[in-house]
Design a protein around this nucleic acid. Structure first.
Length: 668
RNA sequence: GUCCCCGUAGCUCAAUUGGAUAGAGCGUCGGCCUCCGGAGCCGAAGGUUAGAGGUUCGAAUCCUCUCGGGGAUACCA
């Protein structure tokens, strides 16, 4: 099996190397003769799950059989007889109820490998109709320190933005930070009453975080004390009711059983709430200082809300404090983003839209979309019980109003075609109402999409917290990741006869492995399921992890280094692509599927489909190593061909990881 | 109460959105090799896809009900 490599493609002559698209192009004219709706049937051409059924399969004969009222096998035979795929496939086979199985010719795979050998995009073609897509992600509240909850939005949003950009879309990443909300009133109040002047001088951001936590704690303390008697009463009532029910009913019928069950659950919930309220109260009362502060600031909740509304009303002193606090908060955020290598084109927080909110509400009312209801201004969307509140009884606007103003701005100023919100799935109702409102309000509403994701859980199956029950700060999380990655890096290098890494190298590699591990663990889960945060699995050197993938890359680099061969020289050389073994063929085909992986991710914004490709590629690579020696290849051509496969696999892995925001190291 | 999501191997997750015999990793057990980076490769065990009906050539996936878990639910963002 031997095929001459095509002449190098120039950068200008972009070509397509997407097997699925190619096959669909071949099927299209045939299917168009049979039906008006060829496109939906073309979707049914897909990679085979089982290699026994070839490389790809077309499942369109069965549904077509129903429409045309003919046996599906007969239709499949007809499609096959009219299909022109002789240059790329072995003769197609019809199997089962009417599956058409397609096996690619080795020669064609080899030719395609030759075509993409010099291509940095591995044959992934930029989209023909680029759109302007705003990706709204991360969006922390500035006065509060970032925590593990912000990680998913940040990592998933960044990966999606990178891939959209790679695919050729115009992308604007926008960090819609919370820089105008109630938390600012809280730190203003805290600053006025509790600031530690020395701490403020040396570590302003840390001091602001402390002030926020303090005010929050005191506020919750008073709220807890206030609600405690009510909860106790409820609990007693429930317990009494349950007892009554148990005495009344000798014979349990179904509904009574259910009632009791519901009651027990309510009791358990109340007990839990009572416990956590009590813990909050105890935390304050066990410290003399906090006890005093609580006594002196009984009205803290109302007063800090007042600070917020003063800020919004333009009070010069509060405004000055805000101006002073904000840059320091942004700096702290930037530190985290720098470490994660995440950038935003825009950081337009809520404050940027403040002046437009009154206009938004007025316009909604004029258009009859918003109405007064119980003193608040609301938009009601059919089919939703909950209102979309754009102005509260006290006259303040809500995040609903801000989000509407933001959409309008993005359409007006950015000419955005599409907006993606990478936000926790718990906010899906908000977005449903937001999008429905925007659709009715704007003349040319953009296409909006809530890219939702689940909660980060601990190993106990509950939301990830520290042992004391606090949320985990993001910076300490990143520190721990790097710290845990270091022994893994050390162990690998120490095993060598001659260690390759300097102290500085090791630090850098630990950074890459640790931070990559955190990102990869998040991204390799289907985004809408909750996922369990587990250090050991995250940094494992086996299995579907960043470390394993980074290792696969470094291993190839090591082979080239040991053989004294420059990788770029291999990609640029002209020589035949040879695929004599099953392992070489499988690896080659897998490499050609890179562009499918990019398409799959973007079809529904699911980065985990890229990790699937990466993991399968690494698997193909390992099997290839086992079966095919590069160094001891029988002929120079074969060796060169194998080097080319190695180089392409390495570049595929590096590119795939980089689209997920994950780095690689040539030596690790 | 209403609405939304979920339930797949011991554990963590997939399953190309209705396709063929439900797949990986970890863990367990058993093999391989003087192995270019073994962080490897091959194999085994492990499943009534929570349960019951239904739709059709075909269901983990769609519909109905039951059980179990989570979330949202009028002025926090």
């Amino acid at each position: 099996m031997l095929t001459a490599r095509c002449p190098r493609q120039t950068a200008e002559s972009l070509f397509q190397m997407n097997i699925l698209s190619e096959l669909r192009d071949r099927f299209r004219p045939v299917l168009e003769q049979l039906t008006d709706d060829a496109e939906s049937l073309l979707e049914m051409i897909r990679p085979s799950q089982d290699p026994r059924f070839g490389d790809y399969q077309a499942n369109c004969a069965m549904p077509l059989g129903r429409v045309l009222k003919k046996p599906p096998r007969e239709i499949a035979e007809r499609i096959v007889s009219e299909l022109n795929v002789g240059d790329l496939c072995e003769p197609p086979e019809v199997a089962g109820p009417g599956f058409i199985n397609l096996k690619l010719k080795d020669a064609w795979i080899a030719k395609c490998i030759g075509d993409i050998a010099g291509d940095d995009r591995l044959g992934s073609e930029p989209v023909k109709n680029p759109r302007h897509i705003v990706v709204d992600f991360s969006s922390p509240n500035v006065a509060k320190p970032m925590h593990v909850g912000h990680l998913r939005s940040t990592v998933i949003g960044d990966a999606i933005a990178r891939m959209l950009r790679f695919a050729g879309h115009q992308v604007t990443t926008d960090n819609h930070i919370g820089d105008w909300g109630t938390q600012f009133g809280m730190i203003i109040y805290g600053y006025r009453h509790f600031v530690d002047a020395d701490a403020w001088q040396t570590d302003p951001v840390g001091e602001l975080a402390r002030l926020y936590r303090l005010v929050n704690q005191l506020t919750e303390y008073h709220a807890a004390r206030e609600s405690l008697p009510g909860i106790r009463k409820q609990l007693e009532d429930r317990r009494a009711a349950l007892q009554q029910l148990e005495m009344d009913s000798q014979a349990d019928d179904g509904s009574r059983k259910k009632q009791k069950k519901a009651m027990r659950r309510q009791i358990a919930e109340l007990e839990e709430r009572l416990q956590s309220l009590q813990a909050r109260i105890d935390a304050v009362e066990s410290s003399a200082e906090l006890r005093n502060q609580a006594r002196e600031h009984t009205d803290i909740a109302r007063l800090s809300r007042l600070e917020t509304s003063r800020l919004h009303a333009g009070d010069p002193e509060n405004r000055a404090l805000w101006e002073e606090f904000l840059p320091k908060c942004l700096e702290a955020l930037q530190r985290v983003y720098d470490r994660l290598q995440i950038t935003f084109d825009l950081t337009r927080g809520e404050s940027a839209y403040h002046d437009e909110l009154a206009g938004v509400v007025a316009e909604l009312k004029d258009r009859g979309l918003a109405v007064d209801s119980d003193g608040a201004v609301c938009v009601f969307i059919d089919g939703n019980e909950a209102p979309f509140i754009v102005q509260k009884t006290d006259g303040a606007f809500t995040y609903a109003t801000t989000d509407l103003a933001t959409i309008a701005w993005r359409v007006r100023e950015l000419q955005a075609d599409e907006i993606l919100y990478v936000v926790d799935s718990r906010q899906s109702e908000h977005f449903r109402l937001l999008f429905a409102t925007a659709d009715r309000w704007l003349e040319q509403p953009p296409s909006c999409r809530h890219v939702a994701f689940g909660t980060v859980m601990g190993r106990d199956g509950r939301p990830y917290k520290t042992r004391s029950g606090d949320v985990v700060g993001l910076e300490s999380l990143l520190d721990e990741a790097v710290q845990r990655a270091r022994p893994v890096v050390d162990a690998n290098d120490d095993e060598r006869d001659e260690p390759l890494l300097t102290e500085e190298d090791r630090r850098r590699v630990a950074d890459i492995v640790g931070l990559g591990g955190i990102k990869y663990a998040d991204l390799h889960h289907n985004r809408d399921s909750d996922y369990v945060f587990d250090w050991d699995r995250m940094l494992a050197t086996t299995g579907n992890t960043a470390a394993y993938m980074q290792y696969a890359f470094a291993r190839i680099c090591g082979i080239f280094r040991r053989l004294g061969i420059d990788r770029s020289a291999v990609a640029a050389s002209d020589g035949p692509v040879l695929l004599p073994t099953a392992e070489e063929r499988t690896l080659a085909l897998q490499i050609l599927r890179f562009s499918e992986a990019v398409d799959d991710v973007l079809a529904d914004y699911r980065p985990h489909l890229m990790t699937v490709w990466l993991f399968e590629t690494a698997g193909c690579l390992s099997r290839f190593y086992g079966a095919c020696s590069v160094r001891d290849a029988e002929t120079p051509d074969l060796r060169n061909s194998r080097l080319l496969l190695c180089d392409l696999a390495a570049r595929g892995i590096r590119t795939g990881l980089s689209l997920l925001g994950i780095e690689t190291a040539e030596v690790m």
